[in-house]
Simulated scan of single mutants.
Amino acid sequence: MRDILSDLEQSPLDPAEAIRAQGRRTLPKRFYKEVTVAEGEGGHEVRLDGRTLRTPAKAKLAVPSAALAAALAEEWAAQGVEIDPFTMPLTRLVNVALDGVARNPQEVKEEIVRYMGSDLLLYRAEGPEGLVARQATHWDPVLAWLDRAHDARFFLAEGIRHVEQPADMVARVAALVGTDDPLSLAALSTLTALTGSAFLAVALANGVLDADAAWRAAHVDEDWTIERWGEDAEATARRAAREKEMRAAVRLLDLVKG
């Protein structure tokens, strides 16, 4: 069990590769009958046949929210004859938070903030007109919220030419990533990487967008291309896997909040 979860933890934001790697090895058999949740010293624990579940780094898997612990327990209870880590996105994300993010939350914050200087939403297509309009429809409301609610205004660029953004404006949005909670940071980091936009991640975290709207906004260009040229099966599977990870991160944020 440790080896499989560790492999997925090393590359949590590339679920498609995780699927391929998983297909090259045998999944472990389910070794437990009962999954329960109990309150322990470090928080709410998931227990398999009475034994506390542990992360790949051997830490107790304890979370502050009873609702989150129950959601994790559901993933473990839903396993069949074999244990398939890919069907447990919340468990994998919590493992990443407890084993990785908790050790250096500041580094994770800085990684999220780095996206803001060249965020997806700031780089617009030069054409065709329909794509330009669609980007504006999905992206402008988020930038308008940053301006209205946080007095943060940014320069838009056309094409791939880099445009330096005002440091004070980036700092205002960066303040929205103020938490040191490893679970929230792991979710925000995942959302940023999967959407290509820290702005979309903080908008999600603040209830400005729901998961459906954020996913559509993150794939404006891709959807435009698919509508004209079609999509192959591998790309479809890869996108579905990434969406599953994204929705798990959104759910984790919701469960951490309460």
Rank of each mutant, 00 (worst) to 15 (best):
A57Y: 02
S197H: 15
T190R: 05
R24P: 01
L93Y: 00
H162Y: 08
T179E: 04
E82H: 02
I83F: 00
V35I: 15
V96F: 10
L191R: 01
L93T: 02
A193K: 13
D180S: 13
R153P: 03
R172Y: 11
A249C: 06
A18Y: 00
L204R: 00
D14F: 10
E126K: 13
A186N: 08
L53T: 02
M169I: 00
M246L: 12
A167M: 09
G42L: 06
W229N: 10
R47N: 05
L255C: 02
E129C: 02
A249I: 10
M1R: 10
E158Q: 07
R124H: 08
T55K: 02
E45K: 05
G50P: 01
P182L: 09
R20F: 10
Q165F: 11
A237R: 08
T225Q: 15
V177K: 11
V101N: 03
M1K: 02
A198H: 05
N206F: 12
D232W: 11
Y123V: 01
S6N: 08
R114I: 01
R216Y: 15
A237S: 05
Q165E: 04
L98K: 03
W229M: 12
P166N: 03
K29Y: 13
P64F: 08
I4W: 13
R153Y: 05
R2A: 02
R92I: 00
A167G: 02
T225I: 15
V256K: 15
R239W: 10
K257P: 00
G178Y: 14
R103T: 08
V142I: 13
M88I: 12
R24E: 08
G207A: 03
P141V: 14
L176Y: 04
A174T: 12
E158A: 05
A136G: 03
G43C: 11
S189K: 14
V208I: 04
V163N: 10
R239G: 08
A18C: 07
L131M: 13
G100H: 13
D140R: 14
E158M: 03
T36D: 06
A59P: 07
P64Q: 07
L90W: 04
L98W: 04
G23M: 07
L146W: 04
Q22G: 14
H150G: 07
H162A: 05
G130K: 04
R148Q: 13
A152R: 03
L122P: 06
R238K: 09
H219A: 04
L209K: 06
D147W: 11
E110H: 15
R47T: 09
S184T: 10
R134F: 01
R92D: 03
D147L: 11
A213W: 05
A38R: 11
A62H: 13
V170W: 15
A233F: 07
P12I: 01
E158C: 01
P182Q: 07
L122W: 06
F31S: 09
A62G: 14
V256C: 14
P15L: 08
W224A: 11
R103S: 12
V256A: 09
D140T: 14
S65Y: 04
A241Y: 07
A186D: 03
A97N: 14
V63M: 03
P15W: 09
V250P: 13
V173N: 15
V81R: 14
L188H: 02
N95D: 14
G80D: 14
T36C: 02
A217W: 08
L90N: 06
A144D: 10
T195F: 00
L185Q: 13
T36A: 08
V208H: 10
M246A: 11
A214K: 05
